[in-house]
Computed example of a mutant assay.
Amino acid sequence: MSLINTEVKPFTAQAYKDGKFLTVSDSDLKGKWSVVFFYPADFTFVCPTELEDLADNYAEFQKLGVEIYSVSTDTHFSHKAWADTSPAIGKIKYVMVGDPSGVITNNFGVMREGQGLADRGTFLVDPDGVIQFMEITAEGIGRNAAELLRKVKAAKYVREHPGEVCPAKWEEGEKTLAPSLDLVGKI
Rank of each mutant, 00 (worst) to 15 (best):
M1N: 04
E7P: 15
K9G: 02
F21D: 02
T23Q: 14
D28N: 14
K30E: 03
K32E: 04
K32P: 06
V35E: 09
F37S: 11
F37C: 07
F38P: 06
P40W: 06
A41P: 05
F43I: 08
V46R: 02
T49A: 03
T49C: 04
L51E: 01
A55Y: 01
N57G: 03
Y58E: 06
F61C: 02
K63Y: 00
Y69W: 08
S70P: 15
H79Q: 10
D84C: 01
P87L: 05
G90P: 05
M96G: 10
V97H: 08
N106L: 12
F108P: 00
G109E: 07
E113D: 15
Q115V: 13
A118M: 11
G121M: 06
P127N: 15
P127C: 12
G129S: 14
G129N: 11
E139Y: 07
G140Q: 10
G140L: 15
I141Y: 00
N144R: 04
A146L: 03
L149F: 01
V152F: 04
A154K: 03
A155Q: 07
K156P: 01
K156M: 00
Y157N: 08
R159S: 12
R159H: 09
E160G: 11
A168F: 12
K169D: 13
E172F: 06
G173K: 14
L177Q: 00
P179D: 10
D182R: 09
D182Q: 08
L183M: 13
K186I: 13
